[in-house]
C-alpha cells in the first residue's frame, strides 16, 4: 500500500521549509454515518514527530479538529542537501506510519 505520508522539503538560504500531507480520516466522533445513522467513532492522529538526521525538530499534539487528510508546514535552520528527514504519526487507535526522505 502506498504510504499515508507525502513529505516535501525545500532548502533556501539555509532554511528548510517542510510541507506534509497525511492521509487520515480524522474522525471527530461527532459525525453520524449517512446510511446507518450511527455515530462514527473518533479516530484521529494525536502525535506527529519530524526528525532531521534522527534529531527531533518538531513535535505536534493534535486534536480531532485538525482537518481530514492533515496538512502541516514548518521551517527550520541547519539543514543541508542530502540530510535525512523523517516524519511519523500515531493515531487514537494506535495505528502509525512513518516516512524517510532526503532533503534536496
Amino acid at each position: 500500500m502506498a504510504s499515508s505520508i507525502r513529505l516535501r522539503s525545500r532548502l533556501r538560504d539555509g532554511v528548510c521549509t517542510v510541507r506534509a500531507i497525511l492521509r487520515h480520516p480524522m474522525e471527530t466522533g461527532f459525525r453520524n454515518n449517512m446510511e446507518t445513522g450511527e455515530l462514527v467513532p473518533a479516530h484521529f492522529i494525536k502525535l506527529v514527530t519530524v526528525k532531521h538526521n534522527d534529531v527531533v525538530v518538531l513535535h505536534c499534539d493534535w486534536s480531532r479538529a485538525v482537518s481530514k487528510n492533515p496538512y502541516l508546514s514548518f521551517m527550520f535552520e541547519g539543514a543541508k542537501a542530502g540530510d535525512k528527514l523523517e516524519l511519523s504519526w500515531l493515531d487514537t487507535k494506535g495505528e502509525s506510519d512513518s516516512l524517510v526522505t532526503t532533503i534536496e
Binding site: 532554511v15 518538531l58 486534536s63 485538525v66 482537518s67 496538512y71 514548518f74
Partner: peptide
C-alpha cells in the same frame, strides 16, 4: 466555540523558525 477548543500544539526546537501552518475544523 469549538466542541473541544484545544485544536493543536506544536513543540518547536531551537532550529525552528516561529512558523507553523495547518488546516483545522471550525
Amino acid at each position: 466555540k469549538n466542541p473541544t477548543p484545544l485544536i493543536a500544539n506544536f513543540d518547536l526546537t531551537p532550529a525552528c523558525k516561529g512558523f507553523v501552518s495547518t488546516r483545522i475544523k471550525v
